[in-house]
Design a binder for these strands. Structure first.
Lengths: 206, 206
DNA sequence: GTTTGTGAAACGATTCACAGCT
DNA sequence: AGCTGTGAATCGTTTCACAAAC
């Protein structure tokens, strides 16, 4: 498959969210223009984004909402559930375990790990916090699709290496460090201090 | 000032993080190459990024670590502290209040609001949760630099309008909705489900 | 008449490559 | 000799504009 820009994939995710809202509201068809308005982009952009994957619309009419939803879920790989492991049961880790937006979309957090003996064994949203020392033993056979790294910065690369070793191919990283991974492993970073700095830059330059 | 790409600003933030580590380690000068390696980019990119703001290096030598740190902090607007209000004392909101990475960098959370009477008055990391109904009365005079929106999706636009009305110019939005704001208000989105979908796309297309 | 799908044009960001300074 | 700063070249993304489909 042709390489698709990450910005395109992110917009497709957004479009899908809007389509799902339209679906709930019982709206049957939608134009590229309508999707563009909600997503803060242009109709040409919407059509170009979709055109990388095929042609899903009807000229003069627009797109069938349920059909395009299904297509986007398929493109994004959301037609199947994903098993997610959270490493780090601190404030962020536990907040994520309880975040309903994940399970809703098929991302099921199945394991939570920590290294702190005071946390190990404690329940967190019906999930027992497990000992990170046992991680490989417990996860080697499991099919972990995605790992969420919510550890302090210092441990992050070490945990990453261990995750990569047991075959994890996708990591969502909340630790403020650049992770070194093989080319076939995807990493997404969430760095909240960096988002704030983007805002402070914007505030300064006005 | 010339318009700078957001990608450039984000890289400058990253460079600053590395420079601060170098500073701690007592390293006096650094080359664009060294910064590039840590940031997963190229030396030309680093030099180009900096060149938008001036020339800070010495040919044949590289950049003075403390000098470039100071310059980047200045460019990013980090030489002064920011007053931050968090709206929504749910899991994400309270996790943010306790996140040390913010105060470290001069982002001081001064207010936390919620609408749930069971939460109002409760302390959260030495900060009392306040009634969102009183928000305008309490914040109109205060100098809120940045608001962090950590409410459910349904309330987000309403709160945003109220924040804009009292003059807030920068919003970090954790609610999974596209916010409608005037052109002079900056919004950064953090959408964790979207990050996971980027990963599921990557997993699917291999 | 409306809206898609898509080449072509415009724009923007990254990389190249080298002159110029230390 | 080493490394920056920067125009020029390249590459990628977005916007334009219109023929084709409904």
């Amino acid at each position: 498959m042709r390489k698709i820009a990450e910005s395109t994939v992110r917009r497709l995710s957004l479009y899908l969210r809007f389509l799902e809202k339209f679906e709930q509201e019982g709206i049957a068809t939608v134009s590229s223009q309508a999707l563009a308005e909600r997503g803060g982009t242009t109709s040409a952009q919407v059509r170009k984004d979709l055109s990388f994957f095929g042609s899903f619309g009807k000229r003069g009419l627009g797109y069938s909402v349920p059909e395009l939803s299904r297509t986007l879920r398929d493109i994004l790989g959301l037609e199947r559930p994903y098993n997610v492991a959270v490493i780090g049961a601190g404030k962020i880790g536990t907040a994520l375990v309880q975040y309903p937006g994940f399970a809703n979309r098929g991302f099921h957090i199945r394991w939570v790990y920590d290294r702190d003996p005071r946390k190990i064994g404690v329940s967190c949203n019906h999930l027992k916090i497990r000992d990170v020392a046992q991680m490989e033993a417990e996860l080697a056979e499991a099919k972990v699709d995605i790992a969420i790294l919510a550890t302090p910065a210092d441990g992050a690369q070490g945990i990453t290496d261990r995750l990569v070793a047991i075959g994890v191919k996708a990591i969502l990283n909340f630790a403020p460090v650049q992770l070194d991974v093989p080319a076939d492993v995807s990493v997404q970073h969430v760095n909240m201090a960096l988002e704030l700095e983007t805002l402070s830059y914007a505030l300064r330059n006005r």
